[in-house]
Amino acid sequence: MTMAPGRREVLGGLAAAFVGGGTARAAGAPLTLLTNWCAQAEHGGFYQAQASGLYAKAGLNVNLRMGGPQVNAMQLLLAGQCDLALLQPEEAIRAGMRGLPAVAVATTFQKGLAGIMTHPDIHDPGQLRGHPIFISAEGRSSFWPWLKARYGFTDDQAHPYTFNLQPFMFNPQAAMQAFVSSETYAARKQNVPFNFYLLSDLGYPTYGNVLLASRSALQTRKDEIAAFLAASSEGWLQYIYGNGQDGDRAILAANAHMTSDQLAFSRATLKRIAALGTNGASILSMTDAHWMDIHKTLLQSGLITDDPRWRDGYTLSFNGALTARVPS
């Protein structure tokens, strides 16, 4: 799950063109969610809601559209090619600051899924000073400055992330960005020993897979979006804490490269790390306090300027529509 090259520049160029409400979608069109990768467990609650009939029960016609590394989700959202898109909170904050008509309305995960994978001899991330670390473009514009400040890393340690384990496997000094529910599975399957440090556990505040809506969709399809989020929260409850087989079957049908074994691993991992929140938490909900922590970290890292418009990048108005809670 990575940012398309040049997304920050694209956002800047789009600000003037989409300073209004964005491009509206045709009346009667399906409500379309654009994900940030090929179908996988990290999207499972949405596929569960689709496959188990939760969306249909809510009177919704929903289209789940897969993203990927070459898909610029923000550009497609602003162009009216989808109603909602899975992005990261940094992008919502920057959208607010730039006056782009895109607003975070919910978050899939209460914490980020990214972390640092190291070889077994590394028992604390601070031991990585001077070691090569493979980091994606998205990571460089989000958590990398925070890691540098916290652990004393330098930019010459950052090497391009290549979406495979080979550079890590064959360099005993290297570490790499990884997702707790993805690359760790690949390492286990290849019998590669490792340690993993979830950034959220290290103190990095973020959300994971935030749902952004276009302002045009908020103006014309607000009730549908509220119903979609309510059904999606129930879908995630089923997928992680119930029988998620409907969602798994839908994911496997959509993504020929996915396996049942990986889905089972990822679902168990998301449950283990309490990705949907702690016991009793409202699934998909957000808070002002968490957004303020994210903004503060971006500001201290020098990734944004102090612009009060950042708050325009999210709304808590849909929290009341969310019906599912993490089981106690």
Rank of each mutant, 00 (worst) to 15 (best):
L263T: 01
N255K: 08
A226V: 01
K271H: 13
D261H: 06
I251S: 01
S233V: 05
A268C: 12
D248R: 02
Q245M: 14
A268K: 09
A268N: 10
D223I: 12
F228H: 02
Q245H: 13
T269R: 00
D248K: 06
R267K: 08
K222A: 13
N243M: 09
G235A: 01
G242Q: 03
N255H: 03
D246T: 09
A268S: 14
A231L: 07
A250K: 03
A256V: 08
D246V: 04
Y241R: 06
T259G: 06
F265H: 05
Q238S: 14
A264Y: 07
G244E: 05
G244D: 05
T259D: 09
K222V: 12
Q238E: 14
T269G: 07
A268D: 15
W236A: 02
A254N: 07
L252M: 09
A256T: 10
A256K: 11
N243Q: 12
L263I: 05
A254R: 00
R249W: 09
L270W: 05
L252H: 09
A226G: 02
Y241V: 01
L270H: 01
Q245P: 02
A226R: 09
K222C: 12
A254I: 04
A227E: 11
S232V: 07
Q238W: 01
I225E: 06
A230D: 07
Q238C: 10
D223A: 15
L263Y: 03
M258N: 02
S233P: 05
D223P: 10
N243F: 01
N255F: 06
D223H: 13
F265Q: 07
I251F: 00
T259C: 09
